[in-house]
Design a protein around this nucleic acid. Structure first.
Length: 452
RNA sequence: GCUCCCAUCGUCUAGCGGUCUAGGACGUGGCCCUCUCAAGGCCAAAACACGGGUUCGAUUCCCGUUGGGAGCGCCA
């Protein structure tokens, strides 16, 4: 979700500025980067409608450039080999911290001038002795840190693999990146990257850090507890435009506007209106946005998004029909998610309906059997299966049974034909289901009343 | 612990020294509508974290406190 929003901001910014968006997969950590995790990125971006101009590039495939950069730095004396082992470092680190001082790498190998034959070693960037690594962040404004606060960071592991911080800088340079828009978790990393640009004698790009999205309560998003990916929300039945608008409004605003289409985000997005405090992901707003889009999306589009959910609910592939279209329109105002909508539409696409226990208990009571029998007879005799005609039948039946309140008749019928106590208006529901199936289900309900 | 960052209703936010008895939206409560559930309409409760400055005047600027977050990896 955080990456999704970052991607959205990058996309909107580039599109509005007339620039080019570059997609690069930073997959240098073999354990974390799998084929599936990469596919999930394309899948999520595709769903949201975020496209890019160059790439995708895989950082892992750019290894030769990273290696060359490290060699160059080494040759120029801007980096040096270090033979300190993790254990030694940990020991010294612990000692320093115990003495109440702050730890950064102590520079033990910095002046050793170790050669390539020094054994197993890492490569560290030789930071200037003093000075400040500062930049003007496009969101946070003046930012920076004194070099004294940063140690000589490792840029190549002892197994020869380059580190992320080195790889991003080398790749951003190679790809001509002018603007880096990323999560605020990288804000503290930036000074070090700035030092790398200095060592490489290249001008750094412009940086914009966007505030993090956190869990309700202000805590970090947890994979176990919270929906964390855009796909998680998709699976819960949220529409792409709802997701887009929700994401856009976390950390960014445009006056009092609450609803944005993708085109509006593209046209209006500006870094100046991005603010600096983390936003809590509150799904309540998402649900509202989702219902808004469920209510307003053109039918074919809504139908396309709904079908997978409906097929899952019906347990067979569901094809669009005019009746289904009519029902979906009726369900728009009663569904916050596609999952809910599919549950409410299920009665039309399958005949395997079971009465919900509570609904049956409350509305399908033995004593109403004569009522349903009466209604059933009249419905069978009805030639014109239209809502006005159905209404007239209901009126007649109610009149014949002592001016029965509408609810006493509509609710049992609703349970009989849908299995549940919730549906669109009863005449509309009957009209959509059709005469044969409606009458059949009422007959079944009568049987159920008499024989259990 | 150290460095950096953040701080307006429960939540997302508007506000960029006087227009603020602080606006909008979601959510919440009430009423209306009503064959269920919704949707819709109307109304309501709800915030400038605290303490110092600066200023004729602070939600808005500065400092501190408190609270929260990020970073401090041979992760990205």
């Amino acid at each position: 979700m955080g990456s999704g929003r970052t991607a959205l901001f990058n996309w909107a910014f580039t599109r509005r500025a007339g620039g080019k968006l570059v997609l690069r997969i930073e997959d240098t950590d073999e354990e974390r980067s799998t084929r599936e995790s990469e596919e999930a990125i394309y899948d999520g971006l595709g769903w949201l409608g975020i496209d890019w101009d160059e790439g995708p590039f895989r950082q892992s495939e750019r290894r030769p450039s990273h290696d060359a950069a490290v060699e160059g730095l080494l040759a120029g004396g801007r980096a040096y080999r270090c033979v300190c082992t993790p254990e030694q470092i940990e020991e010294r680190r612990a000692k320093t911290i115990a003495a109440g001082r702050k730890w950064t790498y102590d520079g033990r190998c910095r002046e050793q001038d170790l050669g390539p034959d020094c054994g197993r070693h890492t490569v560290r960037l030789r930071l200037p002795k003093e000075g400040r690594l500062a930049w003007h962040d496009l969101v946070y404004g003046p930012s920076g840190q004194d070099v004294a606060e940063i140690g000589d960071m490792i840029i190549r592991r002892s197994d020869g693999a380059p580190l992320y911080n080195l790889a991003v800088v080398v790749d951003d340079l190679a790809m001509g990146i002018s603007h880096v828009i990323r999560g605020a978790d990288h804000h503290s990393n930036t000074p070090f990257q700035l030092a790398l640009y200095q060592a490489l004698e290249q001008p750094p790009p412009l940086f914009a850090h966007v505030p993090l999205i956190v869990a309700p309560g202000g805590k970090k998003l947890s994979k176990r507890r919270d929906p964390v990916s855009v796909q998680d929300y998709r699976a819960k039945g949220y529409l792409a435009p709802a997701m887009l608008g929700w994401l856009a409004r976390m950390g960014w605003s445009h006056g009092d506007q609450e609803i944005f289409t993708r085109d509006e985000i593209r046209a209006l997005f500006d870094l100046e209106q991005v603010h600096r405090s983390p936003a809590q992901a509150d799904a309540g707003k998402l649900a509202w946005l989702n219902q808004h889009w469920i209510k307003t999306l053109p039918l074919p589009e809504l139908m396309a998004a709904l079908l997978p959910f409906l097929s899952a609910a019906a347990e067979h592939a569901v094809e669009p029909t005019p009746e289904l279209g009519r029902l979906v329109d009726l369900l728009r105002e009663r569904s916050k998610t596609l999952v809910e909508m599919a549950a409410l539409a299920r009665f039309l696409v399958t005949d395997q309906i079971a009465y919900e226990a509570k609904a049956a208990e409350k509305h399908l009571r033995r004593e109403i059997a004569p009522l349903l029998v009466d209604l059933h007879e009249r419905l069978l005799a009805l030639a014109d299966w239209s809502e006005p005609a159905l209404e007239r039948v209901f009126e007649e039946v109610r009149a014949r049974h002592g001016d029965l309140p509408m609810g006493k008749l509509a609710q049992p019928v609703r349970v009989a034909i849908t299995g549940g106590a919730v549906s669109p208006g009863i005449y509309e529901t009957l009209a959509v289901l059709g005469k044969g199936r409606s009458a059949g289900r009422i007959a079944e309900a009568i049987h159920y009343l008499r024989h259990g």
